[in-house]
Amino acid sequence: MRRNKTLQFVILAAVLVIGGYAVFQSLFQTTAVMKAGNKPPEFRLLGLDGTAHDLSEYKGKPLILNFWGTWCPPCRAEMPALQSVYDRWKDKGVQLVGINLSEEKLTVQNFAREVGASFPILLDRNRQTEKKYGLKQYPTTFFIGADGKIQDIMIGGPLSENDIESRIAKLMNAKS
């Protein structure tokens, strides 16, 4: 009955692994909604500058990722705050990138010029990136640490400069 013992052991071990996996999955279900601590999904998007940009370009430094559209009033309202934060931090190692919510380049360009937004703006296409990020409300702003993990998510807006500054402080603290 020696061999049977091994068989028993193998079967019980298989059950433990497969069953454990099933129960584990039920406990830690990953949903489409991003949470603090998650890694932000990759993207490759066209910038207003005419070149393609990857998320990986922004690695190593804190990154503020703002999803916005010209049709969304709070998004429009927070543009000046974003711009002044960008001006203040662009040389101190904090990056700020806006991702437009699948509008046409012409519309985005005109709007950016109108409000004087000079920070890098990327153009989502066919809502693909916003779907990856599980957006439900606009604007949504992700604060991503230098370690490449999401530290904070601000859903809705408009954000004030203080809102952004306090989160940058946290990003910088985490870095040092």
């Binding site: 059950v15 069953g19 099933a22 129960v23 999955q25 039920s26």
Partner: peptide, 8 residues
């Protein structure tokens, strides 16, 4: 977890 556990 408990329902999945029962099925397992």
């Amino acid at each position: 977890w408990w329902f999945i556990g029962l099925l397992v």
